[in-house]
Amino acid sequence: MSERGIVTYAGIAHPWMCDAMGHLNVRHYVAMFDDASFQILGRIAGKEDADGGLGWADVHMEIDYKHETAAGTLVTVYSHVEKVGTSSLTYLHEMRGTLDDVLHAQMRTVTVRFDLRQRSKIHLDETTRQRAMALQIDGLK
């Protein structure tokens, strides 16, 4: 894992994803961050997640747009866990220019472990907790 976390998404701002001003539209930032979320949460939950009737429910998201993302920009999303709670995780995605490392946007998400049958939050089990803690960046733990 790098000092920024793990790579959870890599892509391009296609012209069809851009608004009338030629910049990546907000809806596509969210889609890229959503794909990144599936990557980091999948690593934390492991293969048994879907079969075990467990999932994640996002309860808070905060996005900061830092730099315009023009059509044709290659982007890479790096993700890491910031906090591990009793039943929740807080993680951060950073979208950076692949070629120039410019920070384009950040999204911080709080998600809770969710029992899909009971339709309620549950405590993180020890295996899940350890996987999440392994995705924290040294110095922030």
Rank of each mutant, 00 (worst) to 15 (best):
M1I: 02
M1K: 08
M1S: 09
E3N: 12
R4W: 07
R4S: 05
R4V: 01
I6Q: 05
Y9E: 03
Y9N: 05
A13P: 10
A13D: 12
A13N: 08
H14D: 12
P15A: 11
W16Q: 05
M17Q: 14
C18F: 05
C18G: 02
D19E: 07
M21A: 14
G22K: 09
G22V: 07
H23F: 14
V26P: 15
R27Q: 15
H28D: 12
H28K: 03
Y29V: 08
M32N: 15
F33Y: 14
D34V: 06
I40C: 10
L41R: 09
L41A: 05
G42C: 15
R43A: 06
I44W: 06
G46S: 10
D49Y: 04
A50E: 13
D51M: 11
D51R: 05
D51A: 09
G55E: 01
A57F: 07
V59Y: 07
V59W: 06
E62G: 03
T69P: 00
A70P: 00
L74S: 05
V75G: 04
T76Y: 08
T76G: 08
T76A: 03
V77A: 10
H80N: 08
V81Y: 00
V81N: 03
E82F: 01
K83V: 01
V84W: 02
G85M: 01
T86A: 09
T86E: 13
L89W: 04
L89D: 05
L89Y: 02
H93C: 12
H93R: 11
H93Y: 13
M95D: 08
L99N: 10
D101S: 11
D101G: 04
V102P: 02
V102E: 15
V102K: 13
V102W: 13
V102D: 10
L103F: 10
A105C: 12
A105M: 15
Q106S: 15
Q106G: 08
M107V: 12
R108C: 10
R108L: 14
V112A: 14
R113H: 14
R113G: 00
R113P: 09
F114E: 11
L116N: 13
R117C: 01
Q118C: 05
Q118I: 00
Q118Y: 06
R119C: 01
S120H: 07
K121C: 01
H123F: 04
L124G: 03
D125A: 04
E126K: 01
T128Y: 03
R129P: 04
Q130N: 04
M133T: 06
A134M: 05
L135H: 00
D138A: 14
L140F: 14
K141A: 13
